[in-house]
């Protein structure tokens, strides 16, 4: 019943102790934030830990927490800072000097936030591809295999590889258009 609520509405409920609203905010951002953390940490286990820690803090300090920007940018900023702190701690442990510097008070830039959101949505679009189409696309994009290599690994023709990737790109574009109208605008 809280499903359509905005982040601000959810947070208002969380402030007065609505645990259900807290769960919804968590479910809304958990996976994207983990991916964001993991892209910095290269460790999905630590990434999950960082995000969980952040949400524990959100709940415990729900009455005092202040947002200078949007709740979304607060969460992404916090994950970015917490990830950097983890990396620095790890560097220190390995007796390196802190290689990562960040201004902890600086909110994540709108450009970075938009890009991260775009990536998350793109990921979801790729996830929705038909299975075969998805495998061919991933082999090309994630494993850097050439057309011929994919063809021989999957025992299909090069023509089919091209057709599957062409189809994947078309489907992804259509999917992205749903949220990013500029992908369908004709200037």
């Amino acid at each position: 019943m809280h499903f359509d609520l905005t982040d601000v509405q959810l947070m208002n409920k969380i402030r007065v102790g609505d645990f259900d609203a807290f769960r919804l905010l968590f479910e809304r951002y958990y996976s994207p934030l983990c991916n964001f953390a993991n892209s910095r940490l290269q460790d999905d286990f630590i990434a999950e830990d960082v995000v969980q820690e952040l949400f524990t803090k959100v709940w415990e300090e729900r009455t005092r927490i202040k947002f200078t920007g949007s709740i979304k940018s607060y969460l992404y900023t916090a994950v970015k800072n917490r990830s950097l702190n983890r990396l620095n701690a790890e560097m220190l442990r390995r007796k390196h000097t802190g290689a990562f510097r960040s201004n902890q008070n600086e909110l994540i830039s709108d450009i970075d936030l938009e890009l991260e959101e775009f990536r998350n949505y793109l990921f979801e679009c790729i996830e929705k591809l038909p299975p075969r189409c998805k495998i061919v696309f991933e082999k090309s994009r994630f494993e850097d295999l050439k057309q011929q290599e994919i063809a021989s690994v999957m025992e299909i023709s090069v023509k089919t590889v091209k057709a599957q990737i062409g189809k994947a790109l078309k489907l992804i574009k259509t999917c992205v258009e749903l949220v990013y109208p500029e992908f369908s605008q004709k200037n």
Binding site: E27, S39, E48, R119, I126, R141, L169, V176
Partner: peptide
């Protein structure tokens, strides 16, 4: 398509994290 192509490289390590399980843990 170029943008999709380039950015899809960045989501190579992306996966669906299990929010429900994690929330129980939390």
């Amino acid at each position: 398509i170029q943008k999709i192509w380039e950015e899809s490289k960045a989501v190579r390590s992306y996966k669906k994290y299990d929010a429900r399980r994690s929330f129980q843990e939390l």
